[in-house]
Simulated scan of single mutants.
Amino acid sequence: MSQRRTSAEIEQTRTALAAAARRIVRRSGAKSLTMRALAREANCAVGLPYKVFANRDELILQLVVEELVRLSKEFDEWVSSAGRHTVGENLDRFASILLDADSPAVLGANDIDDAVISQRLRSAASASGMPATLDAAVAEYLRGEQLLGRVRTDVNPEAFGFLITGAVHNLVAAEEQYPRPSREKLRAYLQSCADALAPDAPQ
């Protein structure tokens, strides 16, 4: 008779399997993540993943939640960069968080076709702060720069937060039909935004 796993052992198994799942998604994309592929990657019995995850969608949900929480913390830290580096460099860093984020499961979340899991995903995303973080982070950052005199006082932080976030997010979601500009060109675009936001130089 097999001994029941303790809650600590179950959590340890979930953590190990989630790490193996992230390796698969990073290497081959979310579509390649199956419970059988996970068992091969983790070098465990095929039935083990089903003992800690109800199905593939619940596994993806855990990966997405972990990524959202981490990204939310990165944006919170980025907001505090007001006054350090240049405004253009900070906007480029904002773009880098989204474009270079190690969050492949987020992009694969659209493949989830379980209505209950999808609702749990929306609730988890809301709890992580990510939906509000994107627009609000840029707006809050720009308000900080306004207080420091590095962004004009007549600039509407919410409007530019919406526009900058929308432009960068579009590059994250865009397919090959809408290729990204080079990082050098994107950096130049963001520097142009920073120049337009800067106070007029004293005469």
Rank of each mutant, 00 (worst) to 15 (best):
I164N: 00
Q146K: 09
A173I: 15
S126Q: 11
T133S: 13
D113Q: 14
L98I: 14
V168W: 08
S126T: 11
R143E: 05
L148W: 06
R143S: 07
M130I: 12
D135R: 09
V138N: 07
A109Q: 03
N110Y: 15
L147Y: 07
F160E: 06
L134Q: 00
N110W: 15
A132H: 05
P104Q: 08
A174N: 02
S96G: 11
V138Y: 02
G129T: 00
D114V: 07
R120N: 10
G166N: 10
A132T: 12
D154E: 13
T153Q: 15
I164Y: 03
S123E: 13
L134Y: 03
R143I: 08
R120S: 06
L98V: 11
Q119A: 15
A173R: 14
A137Q: 01
S96H: 01
V151C: 05
G166W: 04
G129L: 06
L171I: 12
R122Q: 05
A124N: 01
N170I: 12
P131Q: 03
D111P: 14
P157E: 00
S126R: 12
I117R: 08
R122I: 07
V106C: 11
E158I: 11
R143C: 00
V106L: 14
V155C: 05
A109M: 10
A127D: 04
G108R: 08
R152G: 06
R152N: 11
E175S: 15
R143T: 09
D114P: 03
P131H: 00
A167P: 10
D102S: 02
I164L: 13
D135L: 14
E140Y: 07
V151A: 09
A125C: 09
H169T: 15
G149A: 07
S103I: 08
V138H: 05
A127S: 07
E140V: 09
L134M: 08
Q146V: 11
Q146G: 02
D111E: 15
L163F: 05
D111W: 14
I97S: 08
A136L: 10
L147V: 12
M130S: 01
N170H: 12
G108I: 06
D113W: 09
I112G: 04
L142E: 00
V155M: 09
R152E: 08
L142Y: 02
V168H: 05
V151I: 13
H169R: 15
I97G: 00
S123R: 13
Q146I: 08
L99G: 02
V116D: 13
E145Y: 00
D100Q: 10
A174R: 08
D102W: 06
V168Q: 10
L147D: 10
A115P: 15
A101E: 06
A115R: 14
S103Q: 05
Q119M: 14
H169L: 15
E140N: 13
E145A: 04
D102V: 01
S128M: 05
N110Q: 15
L147R: 12
A139Q: 01
L147G: 11
R122T: 05
R120D: 01
F162D: 11
N156P: 00
A101S: 11
R152Y: 09
I97F: 01
S118C: 10
G108F: 00
S103N: 04
E145K: 08
P157H: 02
G161K: 04
A109Y: 03
L107N: 10
A167E: 02
A95Q: 03
P131C: 03
D113M: 12
L121S: 06
R150Q: 07
D102T: 08
M130G: 04
R150G: 06
